[in-house]
């Protein structure tokens, strides 16, 4: 059963989360996001979501552990160990 570590840094305000998800078989980015919206959808601000309850990728970056972008066009991302969802914040 494929597992994926999800780092959710920013889409849910003040909750920086590292969580493990399991899938029955091959999965893609949309399936991951649907799962996250089932779990945390009511906590995700409207700016960070689309009308279809997926992440607004103009503001939420999705990438692998080395920062390579992950998009909806990849049919199977089960080879990844981890995925990040980040809302960038400029430091000070």
């Amino acid at each position: 059963m494929p597992k994926l570590t999800v780092h959710l840094y920013g889409p849910v305000p003040a909750k920086f989360m590292d969580l493990d998800l399991e899938f029955d078989g091959a999965f893609n980015l949309e399936m991951v996001e649907r799962r996250l919206f089932e779990m945390y959808g009511d906590m995700i601000p409207k700016d960070y979501r689309t009308e279809d309850d997926l992440f607004n990728h103009q503001l939420v970056i999705s990438g692998d552990a080395k920062g390579k972008r992950v998009g909806y066009d990849e049919k199977d991302i089960s080879h990844l160990d981890a995925i990040w969802f980040v809302v960038p914040v400029g430091g000070g």
Partner: peptide, 14 residues
Amino acid sequence: GTAVGMAMATQTGD
């Protein structure tokens, strides 16, 4: 704190 930016460096390269 502002250190949130460091947690995001993996994804932004900033």
